[in-house]
């Protein structure tokens, strides 16, 4: 199970566009090993983490701060200790930082990670929601789910994590992750049918 989601994200290489050239190690006087490690982390996780943090904070600049913060932290960690669960660690720390920042900024009223008890009442019809400029119809419909449902769906289908990994990232129980995915997908299907 812990066959490291690292490799999966690599496999889904289309997710990670090499939009920046490699970091020039020109002025590197430090540990070349660490530089290489940072490079590999950036290659694999920069985009996914930013996307994740942006979802939570609702703001790219905040997301950038969060991700930079997260990466600064990981660089202080014992690399060997993170072996095998680096991705979970990064997403989990990133999530907590993003929630902290988001709360401080009060961009939104408590966008909690709660599975609110009754979806129809808590979330308006999808067409009432602000649509993101480039997002597709399915992505719009996703907005009709609770924040936590959206989150686990993205972690599952965008980052290809297992229930267990999602549970560790989000602090939910494994079986509850299953429930969230199940109810989220169900809700999504019914929204799709409504909009056909």
């Amino acid at each position: 199970m812990s066959s490291s989601i690292t490799s999966r994200i690599e496999l889904g290489g289309d997710l990670v566009e090499p939009r920046h050239g490699p970091i020039e190690p020109a002025n590197t006087t430090g540990d070349t090993d660490s530089v290489a490690w940072l490079q590999s982390i950036l290659d694999q996780f920069e985009g996914p983490l930013l996307r994740y943090a942006q979802r939570i904070t609702g703001d790219l600049e905040l997301a950038r701060d969060v991700v930079q913060d997260t990466l600064l932290r990981v660089l202080r960690e014992d690399r060997a200790a993170l072996d095998g669960h680096l991705a979970r660690w990064l997403f989990h720390v990133c999530r907590n930082r993003a929630l902290d920042v988001q709360r401080k900024e009060q961009r939104m009223s408590v966008a909690t990670d709660l599975d609110l008890k009754s979806l129809p009442r808590e979330t308006g019809p999808a067409d009432e929601l602000v649509l993101r400029e480039t997002s597709s119809r399915l992505q719009n419909l996703l907005e009709g789910l609770t924040p936590i449902q959206q989150e686990v769906i993205r972690l599952k289908f965008q980052n290809d994590m297992s229930y267990r990994e999602i549970a560790e990232v989000t602090g939910q129980s494994v079986s509850h992750v299953g429930v969230l995915l199940h109810t989220g997908l169900k809700r999504l299907r019914s929204l799709m049918k409504d909009h056909e």
Partner: peptide, 28 residues
């Protein structure tokens, strides 16, 4: 879902931020 979500935009850090990270690993 897999296909659609893969098309969501992928942001990047600023160059400045990347430089700072690099410094953190001992590049300065």
């Amino acid at each position: 879902l897999r296909a659609e979500l893969a098309t969501e935009s992928i942001p990047a850090l600023t160059d400045d931020q990347r430089q700072q990270l690099l410094k953190q690993v001992g590049a300065t």
